[in-house]
């Protein structure tokens, strides 16, 4: 058992994969590199010492003691990093378990409510319907929140699956605009769409990119008050397909702009416009695009509106 444990710890790649960090940021790998550098510099020092100094053994002893102290320190640092990474992973797993547990009672509630609202259990008065609708809207909100939390937990434990398939971004955008039509009409917002001719297909995970565009359209509608205007554009740009969505909504205050892709961050202007929202949408959007090897960015002026864009590689 002990040998097995030691062997598994020696398997650097597996250890690094556990933390989902690139090799050059993995503590075990850095520790190994550091050890090699120390051994190498000790040998060089000894060689130089042997050539120029009378008593090279003393120099070697000194270098080796310094090296030993450095190695112990490096080991402590890498262990503490491991502990932090493990705590973070446990936290994400905890979120995942809690979210799954929340889902069942939530489904029960939503289905029971659906039966009550269908009128099959007797006629419902208008006032009752109003309160039932509040229940339904809020259980929907909770469902969305749980869904976002699960996605975030998948991202953080590196369990977010990513399938690659060829699909047309143009078709996807069209499909989403029509599915958002009831919401945009209710919010008095008009969505226009312009796509460059003969756009190539993209190679990515359609369902994940759908989530990205859904989040961006939803934000654009949500943070616009009064008559809204949203423009979506698609074009080809340097081996990628470029997506842009421009709104004339609340905009993001300058001091908040550097935080908007952070988890749970909600801008002051967002809070003024909408109390709903988990602050997870843009974090999810950015994480998905990173996984898709795409880029994301935005321009925004408070009170004037925002433009969000992303690119997706064609191949």
């Amino acid at each position: 058992m002990v040998i097995k444990k030691i062997l598994s710890q020696l398997n650097l790649l597996a250890q690094c994969r556990k933390y989902d960090t690139p090799l050059n940021q993995c503590p075990q790998f850095l520790f190994l590199i550091m050890g090699l550098i120390i051994i190498f510099s000790s040998v060089i020092t000894y060689a130089l010492g042997a050539r120029y100094i009378k008593d090279p053994q003393i120099v070697l002893l000194l270098v080796l003691s310094v090296a030993a102290v450095l190695l112990v320190l490096a080991n402590l640092i890498s262990r503490s990093f491991e502990r932090l990474a493990q705590a973070n992973r446990l936290k994400s797993e905890f979120v995942s378990i809690v979210s799954h547990q929340l889902r069942s009672p939530l489904s029960n509630m939503r289905w029971a409510l659906e039966i009550l609202m269908s009128g099959n259990m007797g006629k419902i008065e208008e006032k009752q319907l109003e309160y039932f609708s509040i229940l339904r809207e809020n259980s929907d909100r909770m469902r969305e929140l749980v869904k976002d939390l699960l996605t975030v937990s998948r991202i953080e434990t590196a369990r977010l699956s990513f399938k690659k398939e060829m699909f047309s971004l143009e078709e996807l955008v069209k499909e989403l605009i029509s599915s958002f039509e009831p919401f945009s009409k209710a919010s008095n917002t008009e969505i226009s769409f312009q796509a460059e001719k003969d756009l190539p297909m993209v190679l990515s995970d359609r369902s994940k990119i759908k989530l990205v565009i859904e989040n961006l359209i939803d934000n654009a509608i949500r943070y616009t008050k009064g008559k809204g205007k949203i423009e979506i554009k698609l074009k080809k740009k340097d081996g990628s397909v470029y997506f842009e969505i421009k709104d004339n909504g609340a905009g993001i205050p300058k001091e908040d702009q550097k935080y908007i892709f952070q988890k749970f961050f909600r801008s002051k202007s967002a809070l003024r416009y909408q109390t709903e929202g988990s602050g997870l949408g843009l974090y999810i959007v950015k994480s998905i695009l990173e996984k898709a090897k795409g880029k994301i960015g935005f321009r925004s002026r408070e009170g004037k509106g925002s433009t969000f864009w992303f690119t997706l590689p064609i191949k």
Binding site: H100, S104, E114, K147
Partner: peptide, 28 residues
Amino acid sequence: NLEEVKDVEKAMELGATSYLVKANYSLK
């Protein structure tokens, strides 16, 4: 209410006809 890809794949491999996540569907 399990929605991990590995669960869906396992169920389909074992011969399920379809896989529905309760939270994503209405009763109807």
